[in-house]
Computed example of a mutant assay.
Amino acid sequence: IRQVMDRMYTAAPDGYCGDEDNGQTSAWYVFSAMGFYPVCPGSGEYVLGTPYFDEMKLHLENGKTVSIKANNNSEENCYVKALTLNGKPYSHNYITRTDLMNGAQFVYDLAPTPNKQRGTADTDAPYSFSKTQKK
């Protein structure tokens, strides 16, 4: 996700892919900069990426706050080593709208290489991942 953001969103004439979609690509970029983005509207799930910012807060209309912190955030450290949600280890590769609307504290620990042990269970996959194989 970071590679797409870095390579395809620049100030050059060809540096803003998907400009013809009435803002959907821009919305994807903003979500991705927060560390998650909607893949399947209506599913209530957001796929996790890595935040572009070291720390940010979303103040929700219901008075709750979503806090997102990215430890060791850098160009090289673009992979999730570990993630906690509300102080507890979190292995899923998605978050839910309910998680967000209840207020949440996400802490990402980022690293230069992927943690291939994290988020590998079937239950860690987002709704948008198909469970069937094409023939």
Rank of each mutant, 00 (worst) to 15 (best):
Y9P: 03
L58Q: 06
V80D: 12
N115Y: 07
N71S: 13
G119R: 00
P126N: 02
Y52V: 14
S91T: 12
V107G: 05
R118Q: 05
S43Q: 04
F106W: 04
T84M: 07
M101R: 15
A111N: 12
I95E: 06
Y46G: 11
S67M: 11
V39Y: 10
S128M: 03
F31E: 12
G15Q: 04
N72F: 09
T25H: 08
P13W: 07
Y94A: 03
A27S: 08
A104L: 01
L83N: 05
R118M: 04
T10P: 00
N62E: 02
D99A: 04
E75R: 14
G44S: 09
K116N: 14
Y29E: 04
L48V: 00
L100G: 02
D124A: 13
Q105K: 12
M8E: 15
D21N: 06
F53Y: 10
P112S: 09
G18F: 08
I95L: 11
Y90I: 06
E61M: 13
A11Q: 09
E61Q: 14
N93P: 06
D19A: 15
T84Q: 10
N77I: 09
Y52K: 08
N71R: 15
E61F: 12
P51F: 08
M5K: 11
Y94D: 00
G103F: 00
L60E: 05
N86V: 03
V80T: 15
A33E: 07
P114D: 12
A27D: 06
V66I: 02
A111H: 09
M5E: 11
Y9S: 11
P112K: 07
G23L: 02
G35P: 03
Y29V: 14
D54L: 01
K131F: 02
N115V: 02
P89N: 04
T120N: 04
K135N: 09
A121I: 01
K135S: 15
I1M: 14
N86A: 03
C78H: 10
T96N: 01
P38N: 03
G87T: 01
V39M: 03
P112W: 07
Q24F: 03
